[in-house]
Design a protein around this nucleic acid. Structure first.
Length: 456
RNA sequence: GUGGUCGUAGCUCAGUAGGUUAGAGCGUCAGAUUGUGGCUCUGAAGGUCGCCGGUUCGAAUCCGGUCUUCCACCCCA
């Protein structure tokens, strides 16, 4: 009984044409990461659940893919656990591992584990898939690639500046216009304190983050629902609705905070980052946005979010500073900052903007037609010679009709087809046809590399 | 996780008052053209109409469930 083949919800296959586009993205990002002095690492697809749970907030825990233990895991449970019907509780007992949800938390684990083998500040990049049991939508997948760069073991705001430049550099190279939004968690903390709602910080920021989407009134409405007093909302409204230049907004904001509080510190940091950035030639728009919050709750300082300027898509890059992510793994006082590029969304953006380079994916440059065992054998030394000189070449594997072999070459965008039939084999010649122009010529086999050299 | 939506040939889609053999374009394959692709012409293959069940004499069509797609919420890359 043949079953209809399929892949799990939210996952995808990638065909060669798509891979060309994806590799273009990965190559560009990797080139930039290398250029700024970051080194690559990889970590396993699965982590111990204990490393993952509790790092992303309640929502994150729900979206973790859990891996069922091997062996007789049910036999080890007592009656009460087995029959409890509490699937959440049961899952915790029969799953010890899970698929990673992002690259930052595994990296924190990695840093603590290998601290004695690393040189700090440690600048690493990591390009690997992550998994989230989210409900799929446009630009939202259950398996997708993140491209992370992080510096760990340095408090300097130079790192934030560097990451902003990396963002700009990557998107300029990819030909995507973006808006780089910046904020600082300390500013948000300061605001919450100022309006007397420290305990409602999360509810406040979650609501504020929706400003772009639902507008000021709706944001205020949501905050009211979440139990923030009307008094506090009234104070908050002018802050959220603040407009003007980055420095103007910052100054206005700073004046509202008390001298030594986190709010003042946040504005000071933000100003420093923006001032340094103004010394550089950033092509994309950099915007200080008080309403930017970001969900992951381990961020403590600067936060980043990048959106495509010309396409409606969620954020295509995001990140921030986390002061104590390694603390939970037993290494205190190590601050890090990092950003993550979402390769799959970037791909979707490029598809929509038509931004992929037009060059067709390079495949074989020259193909030998197969006229039979003997003739094919005459091609082998030539194949070898071409490949050694860096020309990608292949021999059609089966001795089938010429028409079919030509069609194959045509479909695969192969530039040259070389024919060594009975006559050519006898005369030690080869006929090379240029598939783009349709012209062909016959010459001694020795001259193939020369011919290719001239033509390439 | 909540609400909605989609699913017909490899691809893009037609096809309902429920009624014989479910169609088109593109692609594929074969031939016209025995050593020459793209263009043209001719022909062919290819479908349990997502899956399971129900209503009916009869279901691609109506109903229920399920899976998938896409969308909103939630959250995020």
């Amino acid at each position: 009984m043949p079953q209809k083949p399929s892949v799990p919800k939210g996952t995808r296959d990638f065909l060669p044409d798509e891979m060309a586009g994806r590799n273009h993205i990965f190559d560009t990002i990797r080139t930039v990461f290398d250029l700024y002095g970051y080194v690559p690492v990889e970590t396993p697809a699965m982590e111990n659940l204990s490393s993952l749970l509790g790092k992303y907030g309640e929502e994150g825990d729900k979206l973790l893919f859990r891996i069922l233990n091997s062996g007789d895991f049910m036999g080890k449970l007592n009656e009460e656990d087995r029959g409890s019907g509490d699937s959440g509780r049961l899952a915790n007992m029969i799953c010890d591992r899970g698929l990673r949800y992002d690259l930052t938390v595994p990296f924190a684990r990695f840093v603590v584990q290998h601290r004695n083998e690393l040189t700090f500040p440690f600048k690493r990049y990591q390009i690997q898939p992550v998994w989230r049991a989210d409900r799929p939508q446009k630009g939202r997948y259950r398996e997708f690639y993140q491209c992370d760069v992080d510096v760990i073991g340095s408090d300097s705001l130079l790192n934030e500046v560097e990451h902003a430049i990396i963002i700009d550099d990557v998107f300029v190279r990819l030909g995507i216009n973006v808006v780089i939004k910046l904020n600082n968690r300390k500013i948000l903390t300061g605001i919450a304190g100022m309006i007397g709602q420290q305990d409602k910080l999360t509810a406040m920021t979650v609501a504020m983050d929706k400003l772009d989407k639902i507008g000021l009134d709706e944001v205020c409405g949501e905050m009211q629902e979440k139990g923030i007093s009307p008094d506090a909302i009234a104070k908050l409204k002018p802050i959220i609705g603040m407009t003007g230049s980055n420095s103007g907004k910052l100054e206005e904001l700073a004046s509202l905070f008390e001298e030594d509080g986190p709010g003042r510190e946040g504005t000071r940091e933000m100003k420093e980052v923006l001032d340094m950035l103004s010394l550089l030639e950033i092509k994309n728009k950099v915007e200080f946005d008080v309403a930017l919050a970001r969900g992951l709750n381990y961020y403590t300082g600067t936060i980043f979010e990048v959106k495509a300027a010309d396409v409606e898509m969620g954020s295509i890059c995001g990140g921030g500073r986390y002061d104590d992510l390694t603390g939970v793994f037993g290494l205190e006082g190590l601050s890090g900052v990092g950003i993550s590029f979402g390769a799959d969304r970037i791909y979707d953006v490029l598809v929509q903007t038509g931004g992929f380079p037009t060059a067709v994916s390079a495949s074989t440059y020259l193909m030998f037609v197969n006229f039979g065992q003997k003739e094919a054998e005459a091609c082998l030394p030539l194949l070898e010679k071409l490949r050694k000189s860096g020309i990608s070449a292949e021999l059609y594997p089966d001795s089938v009709k010429l028409k079919k072999q030509m069609q194959y070459a045509n479909n695969r965008n192969i530039t040259f087809v070389a024919l060594i039939g009975e006559e050519e084999a006898r005369e030690k010649t080869v006929t090379v046809k240029n598939m783009k122009t349709g012209s062909q010529e016959t010459f001694p086999q020795d001259e193939i590399p020369k011919y290719m050299g001239i033509k390439s």
